[in-house]
Design a protein around this nucleic acid. Structure first.
Lengths: 195, 195, 195, 195
DNA sequence: AATGAATGAGTATTCATTCAT
DNA sequence: TATGAATGAATACTCATTCAT
């Protein structure tokens, strides 16, 4: 991505997190990026059109985190646990941003781009599932990439629900993680020899 | 709910659906409700504070649909199918509204109210799961209400993913429904006679 | 004055002092008076029409203070000192109210009423001057009532100027009082024995 | 002063005079200044914050008038007469504006700025008094600048009192001028040869 | 490419006033 | 007389976008 475009996008993420969805302005964004008001429009045709770029950066970050934290050679069950950890983590941190992207792209009729943007993420998790299939750790009938989408959706929604409760209470989050892990394991029939 | 408050809420739902999230104005809402501009503020302190009321109405609608379409005496597997149908249906119809509620309540620091509002919904599905447990149709270890939340989250996110794609293509939706159903059945160990 | 009309007026004074000129509303006033919104309009045709009533009450208060603090038999010079004290005191306390009355009556084309309202005040001070003339304490050529108006204006404006400075600093106020007293004494030729 | 800021200020004075205190709108002001609505807010943070700028322009005008009409070499008594003329004149013409400035700055907690703004005015009159002292035309004990403030306050309040009455009646104004002049002369001990 | 002053359409919110009870 | 829910006109202020430099 063009360097200045990236600066704008990163600043936008910052601003949205600090000011919240309603109060963020282009003026704030350009200030954060250290450029002039007009320069913004050299890189993005409108305010909402930053959204896909933001989404891309977010996914990029997520994938980077994956590669850092995930040991692809560890048993699938451990990778699944890690997945839950990671998804809960970024959902909590970036909840507002995700809502924003969702609304912003929806308004802009760009929602279909979401598919393209999430694609590498689904592929990443899909690959893990595929390898788990080869190792006979999960059911053979599962279509890896489709299942990846369901799995990510499940965990993300569980993470979001955690924040309907008091965010401070970490025990609720831990409990939720255990439950979603159990749910997912059965869905995928992980370690079915254990039952 | 107070009659006039309800009128405002219903009109707000309409306006948000028609005009989209960004373009809806209080002026439109009061016009739809047949009241004066100022009257709005007798019932709601601000534009965004209608959100919880909208959420309540939406959940109310959903629950009503449930009672209409769901045969509580049919086998659990059929009820699950119905659940998927219903969730996909309202997600498709009210996708924008849900996004709006989410953002609106988040912005307003009212997200915790979501818990209270979703509660009857989780209870409804929780009851179904509990009965299924009694009939030995699903795993006994599952905590019904918690599982209900996960299940609803799973199906909703699957539905959302579907409608990020071309909404017209019904085959994709059908395919997604089958996948999520399969995923959920295994998670709950519904067809345990097969194993 | 009608009891309820008085209640409204007193509440209005309170509200204006607490909320300031811009923020005071009829709603606040009726709340303070313990009556309903509509009742206000049974006693006053409009919001601004309370102003003369407020002015009247203010003058009434001032005159009452005079009768309490002023010894009409003491030498004129002492009465003048007292006058300065009193005027500084009420100017400081009710500066906002006076500004409000001024603007409110000006807007309403009721400014001529000011004459009628201030009249008893001018008479009061005029009487003091007249008696001082009889006692040969001030110049004989002075027209008592006209001079009263000038004198009051002089002291009020001096008091107002005090508040252009830091209001906390009492020494400035004391200094100003001494200066205005000296100014007035010479204007009236009070200490004629000095010449 | 920045050219555009000055345009806005001048237009604001116009609008306040024509429309009166309550009815003046920012929209009117910008129309008069020939600029866009938003431009106003590049120069002033709010509607009321124009007040100090208005006050500055008013004082500027007054001082200019002084330099035109006042012969600094004429006897003090004539300069005092001129001072009364000028103060009565601008008080009559700009009565509304002064009330507005007073209220506006009071509301805005900017009243202390008044000191800075009036300062050159007090200095101007203070200089006249100082010179009169050198010429032994007034009492030596007087502190020139402080006395200037009292004197201006006296004359302004006298002028204001005049214009609360029927403004058309010029005889009342003339009478008041004579009285205030007499009052001031004695206060300053002008014409001390007469005593 | 970059700037940032200027634009002006757009809207939530307020509050004096009314009127059916 | 008294009420207070309902009214709706009126307006300050915001901010995405433009364009001359």
């Amino acid at each position: 991505m063009d360097d200045k475009k990236r600066m704008i996008t990163l600043s936008a993420i910052d601003v949205f997190q600090q000011k919240g969805i309603e109060k963020a302005t282009v003026s704030d964004i350009v200030k954060g990026a250290g450029i002039a008001q007009g320069t913004f429009y050299l890189y993005f045709p409108s305010k909402l059109s930053v959204m896909p770029a933001i989404a891309e950066v977010m996914i990029e970050k997520t994938i980077k985190t994956f590669h850092q934290k995930m040991n692809v050679n560890s048993p699938f069950i451990e990778q699944l646990e890690k997945l839950v950890e990671i998804v809960f983590d970024y959902t909590n941190t970036y909840r507002d941003i995700y809502a924003l992207i969702y609304v912003g792209m929806g308004t802009n009729r760009q929602l279909h781009e979401w598919e393209r943007i999430y694609d590498p993420y689904y592929n990443l998790v899909g690959d893990i599932l595929e390898k788990a299939q080869e190792n006979n750790e999960i059911r053979q009938q599962l279509q890896p990439k489709h299942t990846a989408a369901l799995l990510i959706g499940l965990i993300e929604s569980a993470a979001e629900q955690t924040y309907f409760y008091d965010m401070q209470d970490d025990r609720i989050a831990q409990q939720k993680k255990i439950e979603v892990l159990d749910f997912a394991e059965h869905a995928l029939l992980v370690r079915n020899e254990l039952r």
